[in-house]
Design a binder for these strands. Structure first.
Lengths: 206, 206
DNA sequence: GTCTATAGGGGGATAGAC
DNA sequence: GTCTATCCCCCTATAGAC
């Protein structure tokens, strides 16, 4: 994590919006400059190249998503709650930051070394959080993972949140909480959770 | 579905590879021409613009993916087998055609009207197949969908296959069958399938 | 149906004044 | 730290010969 000046932040936000809308290759530095209310040259005072700007956007996004999952993990006290809190937080983060998240998840291939390796490390760290959470529950007997495939199940859980950025837009924000809750229910089933939620009355169910 | 001449097909394949690697905006028509072994001008004999070429790639991919799911659906005789066959087929298609699938799933936003609407219709058709399969099983009592949210569950099932294109490459093809099988197991859990697979001996489990 | 050549525009990035 | 102006390159697409 690192701080940005207001000017840097403004360019960063403009770049995130432009990359999200047109892709890295389809975005011109002029477009970014206009969105940021600056001249094209002003962009290069803060970032040395378009790719450097993508790296800043991508790193900031990955760090924020990771932070959200770490916070969720640390508020829970049992494997079930830990995993579901992480799924809920990750889903909500991708929905509430859909534009940034789209850049994070779809523009990795446009990064060049050494930036690519830095981002790859953040991704591994995030994945490992989910793997660890599943393994904890599996070891304690709270979970019963399909085919004993912990890494594959972790991949699938992450996909539930990540793939939302392919279509979700801020227009749909009122549906975010419902989607996050569904992902939590699905995650419980996917890991074979034996944790029983307090059942709602069947007669008033829905 | 429609046929292409060998020359059209060659340009189409070149474009799919280039779009997959660099994105639509990051791909030049010269790059496509070189990959196809043609001059830049030859591309425009077969396609009127770069966007028209993306449309052809996208339509061909969507139609192939839809066909794979339709074939899977029609080979099954009960709701459980129908859904799992579709999940297996969809997952395998996205893995075995990962480069094309990446264009299909990540470059939708670069399409312009009326192409965008044509592709959107193919996507709705594909989604509806999954929704119908889940509803069938829910109605027959074979499934017990979480929160009674059929469309949300369908979205999640599709994400399990689709999100693979974000990282999967042809280098990993030996893992495709294992991933498809895991997605099937996860799908069974996600829809609350009561169908019991023949249990393997617990003592020799895995 | 393919080529060479090129028109016409927009791209990333920099120079130098303020 | 921001601007205007601009370099130089590559872009999409077309013209016209074969």
């Amino acid at each position: 994590m690192q701080d940005y000046t207001p000017a840097q932040q403004r360019v960063l936000d403009a770049a995130a919006a432009a990359f999200s809308e047109h892709g890295f290759g389809g975005t011109s530095t002029r477009d970014i400059a206009v969105r940021a209310g600056r001249s094209p040259a002003a962009v290069y005072v803060h970032y040395s190249s378009k790719e450097d700007l993508l790296f800043a956007v991508s790193r900031r996004g990955h760090e924020a998503a990771l932070r959200a999952m770490l916070d969720a993990r640390d508020t829970a006290t049992c494997p079930h709650d830990r995993l579901t809190a992480m799924v809920h937080a990750s889903t909500l983060w991708h929905l509430e930051n859909a534009l940034l998240a789209r850049v994070v998840q779809h523009e990795f291939g446009a990064l060049t070394e050494p930036h690519r390796s830095t981002i790859a490390a953040l991704r591994r760290e995030t994945s490992q959080l989910v793997v660890d959470a599943i393994e904890d529950g599996n070891a304690s007997g709270d979970f019963d993972v399909a085919d004993h495939d912990v890494t594959g199940t972790a991949r699938a859980l992450l996909s539930l949140a990540i793939d939302l950025v392919r279509w979700f837009s801020p227009d749909h924000l009122d549906r975010a909480e419902g989607i996050a809750n569904l992902n939590v229910r699905l995650a419980e089933r996917m890991v074979g959770s034996r944790h029983r939620p307090p059942p709602r009355s069947p007669s008033t169910g829905r």
